[in-house]
Design a binder for these strands. Sequence first.
DNA 1: GGTTACCTTTGGATCGTTCCAATCACCCAG
DNA 2: CTGGGTGATTGGAACGATCCAAAGGTAACC
Lengths: 350, 350
Amino acid sequence: MESQTPVGRKITLNDIAAGCGVSRATVSLVLRGSPLVNKATRARVEEELRRQGYVYNRAAANLRRRTSSSIALVLNELANPFFAEFAAGVDETLGEAGFVTLLGSTGESSTRQQAVLGSLIEHGPGGIILSPAEGSSTEEVLAAIGAHTPVVLFNREPGGPLPGHVRWDRLMLDNQRGARLATEHLIRQGHRRIAMFGGHDHASSCRERHAGYLEAMQAAGIEVQPHWRVESKPTRLDAAHAAAGLFALGDAPTAVVCYNDAVAFGLMLALNQRGLQPGRDVAITGFDDVAEAAMSTPTLTTLSTAPRARGRQAAELILARLREPQSESRAVIAPVELVVRESSCPPIQP
Amino acid sequence: MESQTPVGRKITLNDIAAGCGVSRATVSLVLRGSPLVNKATRARVEEELRRQGYVYNRAAANLRRRTSSSIALVLNELANPFFAEFAAGVDETLGEAGFVTLLGSTGESSTRQQAVLGSLIEHGPGGIILSPAEGSSTEEVLAAIGAHTPVVLFNREPGGPLPGHVRWDRLMLDNQRGARLATEHLIRQGHRRIAMFGGHDHASSCRERHAGYLEAMQAAGIEVQPHWRVESKPTRLDAAHAAAGLFALGDAPTAVVCYNDAVAFGLMLALNQRGLQPGRDVAITGFDDVAEAAMSTPTLTTLSTAPRARGRQAAELILARLREPQSESRAVIAPVELVVRESSCPPIQP
DNA sequence: GGTTACCTTTGGATCGTTCCAATCACCCAG
DNA sequence: CTGGGTGATTGGAACGATCCAAAGGTAACC
């Protein structure tokens, strides 16, 4: 049990009722805008509410009504601009629907995720929007929150199977299609030697993107060389180091589909150091469309995921689930959009 | 009164009590780790808690104890990486102290801020960490939340005076010193025609930064031209539009102190479009040191504010206030640190 | 006048927890 | 056998709202 803190004396329904000579029940009806109360009474009560500076105690109401007016939002990394935008979208939509957002950040640790979920669930959220920490499992999450609270999974699948009676909804990005679009675009630009760079294939999102890349290459009848697939951590720095692998052998790619924007920026850095100019000597695409993508030199062709819209969408999903607790669980694959900028140039003619 | 949503049947203390033949009160004592209960009983109860999958209802406990276990965090713009980091820091520290974060984002609108505060206060947070929306006033805020809930103001002062009996704490950045450091740095680089760009002077943080700029200029005996001060919204996009104003007249600046990093990036964009190379033709400094600043082209000289540490600090302040509700109100000015990167080049010799 | 109907209002129980004073079981000293 | 002390447990009243069945008041109608 954790620390808690006393709050100052608060005005309650009883104070208002006493203050204007009606019963508690009547005041409650006024508060909820019931048509039952007489106009004159309503006016009197409302005046008294204002006069005493009454604030509604939603916790007490929720207790009695067995309802909830909050949704928990648990993110693996809030500081990432992608998730910050997402959170803003979630909060916006939840706020409009009269819900409040309970925030939890797990810092990509499944241990911390357990603690955070355990703490949040005690506050009785009506549902949870969860972008699982890397390496966390369905089983763990279920143990922390029980099978009764609705969940919308975002961005990632936690490991392990979901028991049949539990209905979680999902909102995922269309990774495969995104990577396919990028690859197709490069092919249309005239490239044939196209590499796929960055990310680790043990992550589901990376596997999906790789699949999209392969799909486009095969559809175009291009034979994919094994050394055109180079993995790296999904960070700028590690990508810059790993980039050498792309040019180690002959038959070097003229275009590179990158796992995400960070990796793409790392590659740009590495190219510059080798005296190659990204967006002229080598074409590049990213994934995410972070703010920086519009400002780098060259500006980066990438896939826009519209994180704020995704946030709104996740909120809509959980709200829909609350309205229809028994409906079939939904899996939404959010579209991504190719944003063509300078970095995806045609190949240089020899 | 807004929509709410029913929650599934929950296990309560009564279920546990009935399940192992003790009273509700005893189970409650077990939950709170009281030394009063017999060892054997405790074991039996704990087993039953596990067996039935009990989850603590903190709202009910808070109601009875008249305590709160949540803190509201209200930000003017969550999507800004600076505030996202800040929020992560806040949530981290609050979580460790056993509090949960209620999130609210106002999108820089004081109307929305009123609505958000009104909704959050109904959930009875123990305190509020508030980065006020532009143009909001102390009076408004006070009307929304009353005088009883502790407040930590971050980053900005809302307009208007604070009644004497209300104790709000403040955590501000050393804006003036930061802008002075940046300006002095540019002067040392050899610049004389230095502009101050972006932000609105009706915002306190902006006025302070402007003051720091003026201080450095005056100390160096440089006469400041009126057209070296150009305002804009503190966003990348608006700054890019407003940038033209800097070069409208002759005597154009060779260096620009920007209100924040977003504005600096907007300026870079605008410069590139005019065929000027930021970091070579024009020196630039920012403010905030967002992650992007280390990765832009050129990398951005800016003032590091360590937003995550600030978040932790804000959380500490509110926690301290909860422990000592009557203590004198505190005002902390957080130091900022100049981070020199590529963008603050010396002037080009004609 | 009595019955019915409608519009308002209300007391008391309730949500899941904590607090408090009271009780109970047990042992030991006198 | 009584009295007191200790340790463990408990019933019932809160907390601030909502729900529900019931009741009071007025008006209309036969």
